[in-house]
Design a protein around this nucleic acid. Structure first.
Lengths: 349, 349
DNA sequence: GTGAAAGCGCTAACAA
DNA sequence: TTGTTAGCGCTTTCAC
């Protein structure tokens, strides 16, 4: 069956270039890849013709014959979350610098999507897969997921921003304990003792690890943990709002609230405002992720930053080195740092 | 009588499946694509083997031999902007439904990147390109860009969320005039007459069109336009903050502020708060885009929504139809609608 | 330094 | 219905 071509312009190939230059396709390929030396005059002639037609070699054919596609697949939980979009963009920039390109798919919280997307990326023969969030966030790794990843790792390296037990996947994670440590030391240094924790689910490793450190620091300073000061939920403004409402209805209110991320913090801000309390005079708020949200709320949020640029670079660097068969550490950690803004201040009590 | 083979390292191909099923590769291809009928028993046997090995055909080889890759390239200005991420995700979902997959790259405000990314997508042989923001936002189309697009359209359809003069690109745009119309009628209906406009650049078509409608509505109601009520800038919170500061320093303050987007609105909110004014009692704020930011500020923002799901679907539908050589309208418009929240109220003056 | 030829994994035209 | 045979556009031995 004749496939109807909507265009007349034939795509030009390496053979067209070769013909016009009076050389073989192999020679053109050589100047394209720089894989072998070509006599200077021929090389220049070929380059001129390539330029003239603005010829771009077909990446599909290249990937087929070559072993590498110079493509890295990224599965993000949801790029609409500024945490992921920031990370993705810095990955994109880092990859570009290294001569790679990235592709993005979103798992959107469905593990079925996630597995399916792994297959799609595999079909596209990406050189490595980076998974940001999703199943790799689980405190307890899902068995069927681990199984799937194990099968993939034989051929394609997988880098995750979390952990994947019993798999050869490489891990580049934020040091969550350190992150919480920074926050707690900051608040306690400001004189706070009644500190609440808002949002997040304990089945998520990063949240669980933060909670562990929260407890540890409380113990360190001899502060008793109060169950009613820890209100879990999800990671959105609603959770922050509802949880904070609950906490502020307590007789003995906390003087500081730690929100699991900037979204939850924005909800906390709303609740606090509605209770006619002032930030940070009456109550301090600190959160994690330091997305642009932290900079746009009133007041601006003190938040834990991860240096997204360095994070993205490390992710891509790890992916490329693994793809090229180099030695790569199994686990690498990102060091967080606290960005002070307007939402945290001395305890007045 | 199945030979158990462990294919850990080697990727399995259509030939392996064929060999094991005792048929030719073409037959396997036929059941894979459904392009021709295959005897039921053979078909089932083949499917069983495919299942067994969890075989996934190489998309590169497929794209190379086929005319279509079932891949749509998307160039976004910056996916960190929730406007683009929302649009991208709904494109992704719509594409998936139609059996296509999407790839995302960010131009990040550099027209060089933009052109380069077009080349990369072309090399990847995407079936269509959707460009969201960037050069296609320009009121006056850049010549060299138009030239480039013209060259591309011969082979690959281009869909833009803006306009591209003198090119065969298809356009799916928000009806900006209508958007501003909704906002102005809303405010005037609430009794506002002193209405300011904050943020945005006039070289951007969407901003310019909004401004034109702003003027038109003022005229319609016999309200004189005041130059000092229109403060341009960019599209970020800083601009909204600075511009609002300027406006609130005026002797005759406006009773309503229209921000060019939710980011700028968040800056306006901060400025207003610092001036100890109340929203919406003292001053109303309305913005465009209805991103999640509108829902997380205090107060929540009245903002113009574009139905991102429908927008994404229309974009993808247009791309696919164009890719398949079907007839497609040159320009299609997205109808905006106003989402009322807490930031707008009756004029008290 | 260069070309011929084989092949990457798949689809499709043509026979049978 | 099915197999054979050409490619798709590029890279890469292997000779020369």
């Amino acid at each position: 069956m004749e496939k109807e071509r909507l265009n007349t312009a034939r795509t030009i190939t390496i053979y067209d270039i070769a013909a016009e230059a009076g050389v073989s396709a192999s020679t053109v390929s050589r100047v394209l890849t720089g894989s072998a030396s070509v006599r200077k005059e021929k090389k220049e002639k070929i380059q001129k013709i390539i330029e003239k037609y603005n010829f771009k070699p077909n990446a599909l054919a290249k990937g087929l014959s070559d072993t590498a596609t110079k493509n890295i697949g990224i599965i993000a939980a949801d790029v609409r979350n500024p945490y992921y979009s920031a990370l993705f963009v810095s990955c994109e920039i880092a990859a570009e610098k290294a001569g790679y390109s990235v592709g993005l798919v979103n798992s959107l919280g469905f593990s079925e999507r996630e597995k399916n997307e792994l297959d799609v990326l595999l079909q596209q023969r990406v050189d490595a897969i980076i998974q940001m969030g999703g199943s790799v966030d689980d405190l307890i790794t899902d068995d069927s997921y681990a199984e799937k990843i194990r099968g993939i790792c034989d051929n394609t390296p997988v880098i995750v921003t979390g952990k994947l037990d019993k798999t050869p996947a490489h891990s580049v994670v934020i040091d969550e304990s350190r992150a919480m440590n920074l926050v707690m030391e900051h608040l306690i240094g400001l004189g706070h003792k009644k500190i609440a924790l808002v949002g997040g689910e304990m089945r998520v490793a990063s949240t669980f690890n933060k909670y562990k450190m929260y407890q540890e620091i409380l113990r360190k300073y001899g502060i008793e943990e109060r169950g009613e000061y820890v209100v879990n939920g999800t990671y959105d403004p609603e959770t922050g709002y509802d949880a904070t409402n609950k906490i502020l209805s307590l007789d003995d209110r906390p003087t500081a609230i730690i929100a699991i991320n900037d979204f939850a913090a924005s909800g906390a801000l709303r609740s606090i405002r509605e209770h006619k309390l002032y930030i940070p005079e009456d109550i301090s708020v600190v959160s994690f992720d330091n997305t642009y949200i932290a900079d746009l709320t009133v007041p601006k949020l003190t938040s834990v930053d991860y240096d997204y640029v360095a994070y993205g670079e490390l992710l891509i660097d790890t992916a490329i080195r693994a793809a090229e068969g180099k030695e790569v550490e199994k686990i690498q950690k990102i060091d967080p740092r606290l960005v002070l803004r307007e939402s945290s201040g001395p305890c007045k009590e």
